[in-house]
């Protein structure tokens, strides 16, 4: 039988090791599946969402309460987006903790990291599109943080929200960034990332001579496993979406004064930026809101370049000795982000 299109997307055979759940945690595949769901549900939402300050929150309410299964579709979109961030973080940790970023996969590591950053930005812009009273604090804080960057801050601020006050041109900018400006790059980089996985020799495993198990599986088997995994993730997502609704709040009044007022009433960042909000309490917004988060990002990005190259036989094995420094660095970064998040949530 000639392979179908979907089978053809996979190599004819791969080492069995590369497809083991305990090795990959299924994170990359789940991320792809979630992105597909995000694309489909996002397009469905676009049929009703109206990106104007007067109508935005009302159109979200229309989707949630009046469009048949609109609330469910919105919940699917919301939960897929939240879980995507968690799954992406797990994927990143797996790659570092198994030394999978090592040559020849250093460039793909950067591509993956870019995809992670784009996912965070997509989550943030999607959050802002609700345009209700609870998004005022992140909208104001997020856009004002950009302005604190010396020399180029004003330019990027204009790029993000289009000049004027956040309330006037901001929503349309956020919408276009969300639908087009961030989505197009994530599609292109995502395809590139998947292509590079194959080009770099598949998922990182020890070289053939260091493997204990040289068994291989066919693309048919791989597709079967993927289908079953998609079904399981899909069922979990449906259960979550039908029982826990996505957050929604009263429509906001889109005047600068009203946005500032609402921001002070409900000063809470979305959960994935709580760690930055916690640091902002400590002082200079440029240092704590821009320099440190970007410093952390750069530190994570240069892990494959600054630390000693892991031994070839260690690549694709969990917590190898030759990779200790990178594991400690990544572990500390994760720990700090998690602690700051918990601290912000407790306050």
């Amino acid at each position: 039988m000639r392979p179908s299109f979907f089978h053809h997307l996979h190599p004819p055979t791969i080492p069995a090791d590369q497809a083991r759940w305990r090795h990959t945690l299924g994170a990359g595949g789940t991320a792809v599946f979630l992105m597909l769901i995000l694309g489909v549900t996002g397009i469905l939402e676009m049929f009703y969402y109206i990106p104007t300050p007067e109508e935005a929150a009302l159109s979200v309410q229309t989707i949630t309460y009046h469009v048949p299964f609109g609330g469910f579709i919105r919940n699917l979109h919301y939960w897929s987006a939240q879980i995507l961030l968690i799954v992406s973080a797990i994927h990143l940790l797996r790659v570092v903790f198994t030394a999978a970023y090592s040559h020849p996969r250093r460039f793909n590591y950067l591509l993956g990291l870019a995809l992670f950053v784009l996912s965070i930005l997509l989550d943030f812009t999607g959050y802002i599109l609700r345009w209700d009273v609870d998004i005022c604090y992140p909208l104001l804080t997020g856009t004002n943080l950009i302005k604190t960057i010396p020399f180029i801050g004003d330019f990027f601020h204009r790029l993000a929200i289009g000049g004027g006050e956040a309330c006037s041109t901001g929503l349309l900018r956020m919408y276009v960034w969300h639908i087009f400006g961030l989505t197009l790059p994530i599609i292109i980089l995502g395809i590139w990332h998947a292509f590079r996985v194959r080009r770099d020799g598949g998922i990182a495993v020890p070289p053939p001579q260091a493997r204990t198990d040289n068994a291989r599986i066919s693309r048919n088997e791989l597709v079967r496993r993927e289908v079953l995994a998609m079904f399981i993730v899909g069922i979990a997502l449906i259960l979550l979406s039908s029982s826990v609704p996505a957050p929604i709040a009263p429509a906001m009044d889109s005047t600068p004064a009203a946005i500032r007022e609402a921001a002070s009433q409900s000063a809470k960042a979305p959960w994935f930026f709580l760690w930055v909000q916690q640091m902002l309490k400590w002082g200079d917004p440029f240092i704590f809101g821009i320099v440190i988060p970007f410093g952390i990002l750069i530190l994570v990005a240069i892990i494959p370049y600054i630390f000693p190259k892991p031994a070839d036989s260690d690549i694709g094995t969990w917590f190898p000795k030759s990779n200790r420094l990178a594991q400690i660095t990544m572990g500390l970064v994760s720990l700090i982000v998690i602690l700051l998040t918990l601290l912000a949530n407790a306050n």
Partner: peptide, 17 residues
Amino acid sequence: IISGLLLVTLSLVWWNS
């Protein structure tokens, strides 16, 4: 089996709405 489960969860969504 898993398609059956998917159907059950989807009917749950329909029933819920």
